[in-house]
Nucleic acid binder design. Sequence first.
DNA 1: GTGGTCTAGACCACA
DNA 2: GTGGTCTAGACCACA
Lengths: 125, 125, 125, 125
Amino acid sequence: MIQLNYKSGVPICDQIVNGFIRMKALRLVESGEQLPSVRQLAMELGVNPNTIQKAYQILESSGIIYTVKGKGSFFSDDEAADTAVIMSAKKDFRAAVKTATELGLRENELIEIVTEICKKGESDK
Amino acid sequence: MIQLNYKSGVPICDQIVNGFIRMKALRLVESGEQLPSVRQLAMELGVNPNTIQKAYQILESSGIIYTVKGKGSFFSDDEAADTAVIMSAKKDFRAAVKTATELGLRENELIEIVTEICKKGESDK
Amino acid sequence: MIQLNYKSGVPICDQIVNGFIRMKALRLVESGEQLPSVRQLAMELGVNPNTIQKAYQILESSGIIYTVKGKGSFFSDDEAADTAVIMSAKKDFRAAVKTATELGLRENELIEIVTEICKKGESDK
Amino acid sequence: MIQLNYKSGVPICDQIVNGFIRMKALRLVESGEQLPSVRQLAMELGVNPNTIQKAYQILESSGIIYTVKGKGSFFSDDEAADTAVIMSAKKDFRAAVKTATELGLRENELIEIVTEICKKGESDK
DNA sequence: GTGGTCTAGACCACA
DNA sequence: GTGGTCTAGACCACA
């Protein structure tokens, strides 16, 4: 489900959080669907359970998932939360584009980088 | 010259590095121009000289400035410096694209944002 | 693992960097193998952790190792790492050639020395 | 006579010392020939007189030049000194070749680098 | 536990 | 004066 990249420099916890956000945004999961348990996912990914725990807490406080004590964690159907995440990502990306253009990168160079990375992401699947 | 933002979470050293890259990219400095001395800039910005030192060494290893022991640091004048600035900007932008895709933004959405902002930049001129 | 020479005049940090590059080049370490932690190596070598930290960051920016926050540093396994080692060696050798020519050694003298030593290395095998 | 390269990272004083050694080794100057005065060379090179002074002292203590108070500095006809410098340069270069081969560089790569840098030095004249 | 950043301050080489 | 290296030690984020 989630591919960790240890060499990317991105904290593992963030990668897990982003992974679930992406699955939801791309409709790879349905609202109400249950997430793996903290312990199970920790084993699958070979990661400390504390790291998964932290990721779930971040997801819950963002409204992306909700947790029922004793039952598990589930993707929420809170569209507002999903939208907020996407809007935030877009805002960050807009800022990055603005910075890049200010530093002298041109439209075609930016688009080239976008397609290059998106193609690469495709082939990784 | 350089404005530090302590609340941003961006390391001071990185802010200084980015500040000089920006100055170079925007042609606010001339090639060969001397940078403030490590100690002087440290005093001006109210940070430890070691932090400035580290920033200058990063800039030097990127080829954006060069240092003469006992004399000071200077903005590079060869084409390599411009290339270094562009490479740095591209690297940052690649990271931004990766983050955006991780959060579920699709290629066409990213390209849309790029063209939107670039067009706007055009019409501002 | 790494022998420091305080009298050589070579900065400690550089000696550490070169030591790991050497270990990688000589295949004394496996790809993916973990390096000692910053603190541990600092204790072993009797130097300040900051010095080790700097060395590790130089190695990382060269692509020879990669670092996972909270986990540790590891030797890179992709081809990029080997390339980085070669590049580093070439850079050092270029500097040596420059110094030699500055001191009046001529091209044919340098080549003679190169072949002499390489032949000797061959016959040692 | 002497070309300074501020970007090379080599201390100016060393570059001057090496420059005179090279001139002598390549027979561009004769034994007994007078060197420019400290003040004159300082002006020509746009360098602090203290730096020239230091370079001359190093050259004198190596036996490459000798100084007559009130008259000036002259290239000595001490062949032993010249030889010693060359031998030292060769020894350093041998060590560099050995290190390079140990790090995985092959004979043809080393020769390529030697010719590349020597050709470049030629065209700089 | 791991690495990352920063301050404070000493001491060195170089110009 | 300039930059370069290093120690000592605090404090942070991450696993």
